[in-house]
Amino acid sequence: MSSSSHWRTRRQRLALVGEQCPHCQAMLFPPRDICPSCHGPAKEPYHYGGVGSVYSFSEVYTAPDAYEHYAPYVVALVQLEEGPLLTAQLTDVEPEDVYVGMPVEMVTRRLRAEGPEGLISYGYKFRPVPERVAAH
């Protein structure tokens, strides 16, 4: 990822900021600035809560450059509770434990690094909603 795209995408990667169309209320992620539903300008930032569920998933064994060291890992289509579907890596989970409909939440993790000298790219991944131990 170049420095410019790194900078341009920082709010969506780090804080899950998308848009809500002011004309037809469509929920957009990633931000597009033009609403795909009504084609009106849509620049209202919307901060997604990061809660969703697994819509579909696939286990990756042959990973693209800069992701090889994660393999095998799970890439999922995650449906946010506000509506949008997005593609993200799942983390803190064994591939055999993933299922369609699994409740997940957004975490910010390392996506990739440009070798030992380049930028480290951070962004959203999803993990199973952790269990809570009983209150004290």
Binding site: H69, Y70, Q89, T91, D92, V107, T108, R109, R110, L111, I120, Y122, K125
Partner: peptide
């Protein structure tokens, strides 16, 4: 984990 550091 592999994708964790002081930032995350």
């Amino acid at each position: 984990g592999l994708d964790e550091d002081t930032v995350t």
